[in-house]
Amino acid sequence: MNHRPRIQIVEDQYLVAQDCERCLEQAGFACTGFATTASNAFDLAERDRPDLILMDVRLASRIDGVDAAIAIFERLGIRSLFVSAYADRLLREQARLSRPLGWLSKPYTQTELLQAVRRAIAELEVERKAQREAFIAVSAEATSRLNS
């Protein structure tokens, strides 16, 4: 990424959210904002268009982080790195619709958080590169067809 990767934090506990922000900022990432509920998470993502969302599964709202992540991915194309204190197989299965960038289980250390975020960003970069190459290939083909 050419810019500082921008990350939105969705977490309903202040102490955890704040600790996470500090850790990410110190490591050179930009934190776009915090949300504690699903609808808040969606609104912020729509406004700020972060590169990725650090999404806690259990939120202060009735709708959980998995459903929020699915809605955000389907409508805004932004993917989430899930954080959960207890993620069973069913939950992970449900979350697949949002094309998760990974799972981080609580409690996590700062090193684990940064590793998971860096891995997620690397995955996004690979995806973007592939999209760019596909686009170039398509436009090259279109140009050659026009010229012939």
Partner: peptide, 21 residues
């Protein structure tokens, strides 16, 4: 048990945050 597990892990993350701050 699942709920208890969830709460314990969550609380440990809060404790980590509290320690750092």
């Amino acid at each position: 048990v699942a709920e208890l597990n969830h709460r314990v892990r969550n609380m440990l993350q809060v404790v980590i945050g509290l320690a750092h701050q």
